[in-house]
Design a protein around this nucleic acid. Structure first.
Length: 257
DNA sequence: AAGAACACCAACCGCCACCTT
DNA sequence: GAAGGTGGCGGTTGGTGTTCT
């Protein structure tokens, strides 16, 4: 016998989440951790599907999320990664701390795609339109080198990225080769494209006493402050490292001013 | 001022791989 | 081994706000 269905289709609410629902979900997860999404709606007193709860948490409520538009450098990183990984947004998001696959996917579809088209670059192949030919016998040296490097690095670093799901093979510059060498070599999250952007992210840089850049939390800092009432570390919240608590303390201090 | 068109993004849907019974 | 549930992923949709005519 299988299991019970993940959610009772009847009586399950859809559509935008209310602040009250958000609070219930946050409180539940902070109290119990991310355990079994199927059970979350019932235990948290939500008339939502577990899947919906998971999505809401991962895409919007997670405290380690950055908010706001992607920076120039993040955008460039997304383009570079997309040229290698294709539409594997979760893989791309894994290399941009604080960003979700949904967010990157949206940004790609609404901003980057148009930008590339405007520049005369095919957002699927990452090739200039005028360079695209049906199938050329010529493969540039740099292309071969790049592919070899990536293959090697994938073997070393990312065994799940197998060839069957390989992305568009259209990187054509040695610059990209260098970039991707570093990407594949540095498997842990790239901390962080935005930090290397000297111009556009001073707000984040202001927080660099922490280990990684936190989002601007103005929108939800109130409940984050409440987090201190729970034993968060006990629930396995990696995002709440010392830096996180530093930030919360800072926020609290600011709040009292 | 009003309606149309466009832009943005949160949320849903359907599929798949893996796991449990 | 089969059946069915779970979690995760990518594609798509629909609501809302903004800009254009």
């Amino acid at each position: 016998m299988g299991r019970q269905p993940c959610c009772d289709k009847l009586g399950v609410k859809k559509g935008p989440w209310t602040a009250e629902e958000d609070n219930k979900l946050i409180n539940f997860i902070l109290t119990n951790g991310q355990c079994c999404w199927r059970a979350v709606p019932k235990l948290a007193g939500l008339r939502r599907c577990g899947k919906s709860c998971r999505l809401r948490w991962t895409n919007y409520l997670r405290p380690d999320l950055k908010r706001g538009l992607l920076t120039e450098s993040e955008e460039q990183l997304v383009i570079d990664l997309h040229s290698r990984l294709g539409n594997r947004w979760s893989k791309i998001a894994a290399r941009l701390p604080g960003r979700t696959d949904n967010e990157i996917k949206n940004h790609w579809n609404t901003h980057i795609k148009k930008k590339l088209l405007k520049m005369g670059i095919d957002p699927i192949t990452h090739q200039p339109f005028h360079n695209q030919q049906p199938k050329t016998e010529q493969t540039s040296l740099s292309q071969e080198t790049l592919n070899n490097n990536i293959t090697n690095n994938q073997e070393n670093n990312d065994s799940e990225e197998n060839s069957s799901s390989s992305p568009p093979e259209n990187c054509s510059s040695t610059d990209e080769s260098v970039l991707f060498n570093s990407l594949w070599m540095d498997e842990p999250p790239l901390i962080d494209a935005s930090l290397s952007d000297n111009n556009s992210n001073s707000a984040i840089l202001e927080n660099t006493s922490m280990n990684f850049p936190y989002p601007s939390w103005e929108d939800n800092c109130n409940w984050l402050l409440d987090c201190q009432d729970f034993g968060i570390h006990d629930f396995g919240f990696d995002c709440f490292d010392d830096g996180g608590f530093e930030l919360m303390n800072a926020l609290e201090t600011d709040d009292k001013r």
